[in-house]
Design a protein around this nucleic acid. Structure first.
Length: 595
RNA sequence: GCGGAAGUAGCUCAGUUGGUUAGAGCGUCGCCCUGUCACGGCGAAGGUCGCGGGUUCGAGCCCCGUCUUUCGCGCCA
């Protein structure tokens, strides 16, 4: 047969027993060599799959095959043949055949590997990041990246299908009002001035609405110079950013909920997607779940049980309640957690968290009343009232935290998460969503001793100008919402404040003058003077969506070339020193800290 | 900026109470092996125990400092 291509007639995932006896050419990486002396096997791998190649002393390729090592790139000419009976590999799509090599050309030999491609043990991040191109060859990461690509493509197609228009907004822009630290880019032409990379295309997309484009979306890169977390990449990340005109909050939910549900339905694998997506007010989420991004797979819901402790024999709580009317006692029910061992384990965990402890009661079989120190202190009647309120039974336990809710709700939420996990109440094979709505517009800043925006300053306060003028700012809610899934915030958005007067008033309450608003958000402030439509939108964290879908616990598992925690790219060596010429052109002199 | 964990062969790790020559697996190199698919067997090379200082007769191990990686806090509209 005349070879029609320099490198391949088939991919490494393509050949089947119907190809038997054909002469083929394949190229790829040597995955694994098994040299038996007289007969030699190796697996050839490319993006599409793995094919076993075999050579024996009768083959003209035998000598070359003996020299092959892992990860060399080679071109193989050979003949497809059915594997001898009993040597088939049913775990491989190509496992019924093998390629008998007649010619081998080494296209790219490989030095000794700093990390193996075959098998996937954990490796230190610095090695993985420095040799990212090798890490990306490994099966799991390679698959994750492909899933990411398919997710992005799915979202883009879907958004186009439902009438959204994709626009690219500028990357070199002005420093924006979001809370994060900006990445700055010096301007050569304007000495001493800097561009900022966008933290989000927030102002641009709102300007697009003012410009009449109605439905905007973008898979947008966003840049924030903040320290990372496992679920927060350093430097840059991607959002599915969207904005709509003439819509209410309900319209946005009705538009995007099906998109997200269909996405997860498409990529869920053998997990299930809970069809109900409840809308939970922010304050209720805090009280029921101890979090503004509750994991609804965990069935535990907390309740206030303050009145059962007020004036009770449990002096610690009773004293706190008497001393401060804002103090509450919350109960964290633990169904089937009714054992001393479990309760003590939770108690030591709490102490490890810097808490004095975690009070509990539990109900045992064949025992009158309840066990645990708190039960004895508050007495059987109050204990029974607690049990009834929470609907608990023999075999169950309940934990208690007391104080001002804003101080302890996080800890209570963590305890709820741990109880759910320890007692296997949380179904790990499910995706459970919720909309968290009615976020507070303002919050009290202890640091600055003033009222500050709780989240997005461009949100519309519920009640509008009237609320800003008449209400206690700390009680004002915003038309602002998050979508959460399994304890992660996957989207955040709001109905925007499109009235310049209301905007000025909103900033005034946060201590920002009209002049400052005009200076810092001049483009948008000006735009709102000339016919701004009511509009709103949201942004989904693409990285987090993919992380949830593939079940990764770290964003580096779904990102092509991530930076390390110090925001360095170890592969490319970024950031790097500028040349003296570059600095001269930019009129920049370095003022480095003392070594 | 702060706190926790880790750092021993190219890679993953073990290394007891401080004790004589620091080990294993994978990989690499050499030899043997005709049906493996984590092939197998024999052998070899490979180490500034992150770095610096200290305690000690003696330190991979204890102490102090420092660097690197990571997880968390701060921060993240």
């Amino acid at each position: 047969m005349l070879m029609t291509h320099a490198y391949r007639t088939h991919t490494c995932g393509q050949l089947r027993n119907t190809d038997a006896e054909t002469t083929i050419r394949i190229s790829g990486w040597v995955h694994r060599v098994r040299d038996h002396g007289g007969v030699l096997f190796f697996d050839l791998r490319d993006h599409y799959g793995i094919t076993q190649v075999v050579a024996d002393p009768a083959s003209s390729a035998f000598k070359a095959a003996e020299g092959l090592r892992s990860e060399w790139v080679v071109r193989i000419d050979g003949k497809v043949r059915i594997r001898p009976a009993g040597t088939e590999n049913k775990d491989m799509p190509t496992g019924l055949i093998e390629v008998y090599a007649t010619d081998i050309e080494v296209l790219g030999p490989a030095a000794e590997l700093p990390l193996p491609i075959f098998g996937e043990p954990d490796y230190p991040e610095d090695i993985r990041l420095k040799y990212r191109f090798l890490d990306l060859r490994r099966e799991t990461l390679h698959k994750n990246i492909m899933t990411r690509t398919k997710v992005v493509s799915h979202l883009r197609n879907k958004m186009n299908d439902i009438g959204f228009n994709e626009f690219s907004t500028p990357i070199l822009t002005a420093s924006s009002p979001e809370g994060a630290r900006d990445f700055l880019v010096p301007s050569r032409i304007h000495a001493g001035k800097f561009f900022a990379l966008p933290q989000a295309p927030q102002q641009y997309k709102q300007l697009l609405m003012v410009a009449g484009f109605d439905k905007y979306f973008q898979i947008a890169p966003c840049f924030r110079d903040e320290d990372p977390r496992a679920d927060r990449l350093p430097g840059e990340f991607y959002q599915l950013d969207l904005e709509m005109s003439f819509v209410t909050q309900d319209d946005l939910f009705a538009t995007m909920q099906p998109v997200i549900m269909e996405l997860f339905d498409t990529f869920k694998g053998n997990k299930t997607v809970r069809p109900e997506v409840p809308r939970i007010p922010h304050s209720e989420a805090i009280r029921r779940f101890g979090s503004d991004k509750p994991d609804l797979r965990n069935p535990i819901e907390m309740q206030a049980v303050t009145e059962h402790f007020a004036g009770s024999g449990f002096k610690v709580f009773a004293g706190m309640i008497a001393a401060d009317p804002k103090v509450e006692v919350w109960a964290i029910p633990a169904p089937k957690g009714g054992s001393r061992a479990f309760c003590d384990r939770m108690n030591s965990w709490a102490q490890g968290q810097g808490q004095p402890g975690l009070g509990y009661v539990f109900w045992r079989d064949g025992e009158e009343g309840a066990a645990g120190p708190i039960a004895k202190n508050i007495g059987p009647e109050r204990t029974e009232s607690v049990r009834k309120q929470l609907g608990l039974n023999v075999g169950d336990a309940c934990f208690f935290v007391a104080g001002r809710p804003e101080k302890f709700y996080r800890f209570a939420g963590d305890a709820r998460t741990l109880v759910g996990k320890e007692l296997n109440l949380t179904n790990e094979n499910e995706f459970a969503f919720a909309w968290i709505i009615d976020f507070p517009f303002y919050e009290w800043s202890d640091e600055d001793k003033k009222v500050d925006f709780a989240h997005n300053p461009f949100s519309m306060p519920q009640g509008g100008m009237k609320a800003l003028q008449e209400q206690d700012p700390l009680t004002i809610k915003a038309f602002q919402y998050d979508m959460v899934c399994n304890g992660f915030e996957i989207a955040s958005g709001s109905i925007r404040n499109h009235s310049p007067e209301t905007m000025v008033k909103a900033f005034e309450i946060a201590g920002v003058t009209k002049a400052e608003v005009e200076e810092r958000f001049g483009g948008m402030y000006r735009a709102f003077q000339f016919g701004a439509p009511p509009h709103g939108g949201m942004a989904f964290g693409v990285d987090r969506l993919v992380m949830l879908i593939v079940g990764a616990s770290n964003l580096r598992e779904i990102t092509l070339f991530p930076m390390n925690q110090q925001a360095q790219d170890l592969l490319m060596g970024a950031p790097s020193d500028p040349s003296p010429k570059q600095l001269r052109e930019l009129h920049i002199r370095l003022n480095l800290p003392e070594a």
